[in-house]
Amino acid sequence: MATPKPRVKVPKKASKGEVITIKTLISHPMESGQRKDKKSGELIPRQIINKFTCEFNGQMVFSCDMDPAVSANPYMEFNAKVTESGTFKFTWVDDDGSVYETENKIAVE
């Protein structure tokens, strides 16, 4: 499996107190554990991203626990209220324990 590549869309600028929309996507097959290998007929073991979190300047903004029913390349769209400039930190946790991270800065005027 290729290393999952996170992609995040955060506005570069916002006014104080504005509620912004954040869109995130990460490339990941989200193997549900229900599918069978077409050749051997054996179940393909589950491997999904089970947790996603978004922090702003170290404070939790939004998080999500995912089950196998979330589609491949999980997409998340949510909101955040910004009162100061800072950094959004996005974290995805895989079933195998790997953690994928990315950061985005926002300037508040």
Binding site: V19, I20, F56, Q59, M60, V61, F62, C64, A69, V70, S71, P74, Y75, M76, E77, F78, N79, A80, K81
Partner: peptide, 11 residues
Amino acid sequence: MSGAADAKTRI
């Protein structure tokens, strides 16, 4: 801090 309780995903 979420500002609005809105979320979208694909299932």
